[in-house]
Design a protein around this nucleic acid. Sequence first.
DNA 1: CACCACCCCTGGACGC
DNA 2: TGCGTCCAGGGGTGGT
Length: 280
Amino acid sequence: MPELPEVEHLRRTLEPRLIGRTLERVDVRRADVVDGDASPAALLAHDTVVALRRKGKQLAILGASGRALCVHLGMTGQLTVGADDTAAKPHTHIAWSLAPAPGRPETTLAFRDPRRFGGVWTFPSFDSLRASRWDCLGPDALEIDPGSLRTSLADSRRPIKAALLDQAVVAGVGNIYADESLFLAGVKPSRPAHTLAGRSRHAAKLVPLCRAIRETLARAIEAGGSSVRDYVDATGSPGGYQGVHLVYGRRGLPCTRCGAPLRSRLIAQRTTVWCPDCQS
DNA sequence: CACCACCCCTGGACGC
DNA sequence: TGCGTCCAGGGGTGGT
């Protein structure tokens, strides 16, 4: 399930394979994964990729024409660059043919998404992409700072876990890294968000929580992200961070720090795992 | 206005 | 072995 680290690792693996490449032709097999103008030109046909940007869990592909695509992977989305058979897998909804380029054997860019929680949005410019999809997001989670987090949490009575999942509070944290960050910071997921922003003793954990979010995400990027089920990078390789999750997916197993059995319950409609002894 | 429940979707795990 | 059921969850939306 792609969160910020998976999308950033994907961006980094796409970059050397896509920058400077011209998208010759686009084959849209499922038009309903495209939002906005789904014409070939809007999907960067005959355009050359000049940059790949990311905010939170969203990826932007910028063309030399000025046009922009926003890709969101949802739960099961994949964006891969490879040989002809890259587009042959089931649930490949969009396939671009890459113009031949010296030293670059890849021929195909494919967007695949079995469950179709993801999609592709087309925009005439990067500015319009940002205005309609990125400006409403909170700060990117890699750069979250105590000041902005405190402001977002101050008036919120919902559980801190629910706040961290809210992309308007901080962009890029999903279920896995919310649980991991809260564990590292010693914060109970159900704790009312505002108690981390006020004058109670728990407010002292705001700075550690910010640090935990940034460090957890940075380490996961270096490990190539977490492949719980479907995530692969641009080359089709899974990540390696799923092997080092401290709480996510470990309900009932002993806490790595104190040995107590990890507990689990739904918070904000998401399975949440935490240590009853290490988090308060 | 803050926040929650619901919904979209498919594949894999599990039980019988 | 095969079939039915349940569960995973990002994010938009409509309701409280």
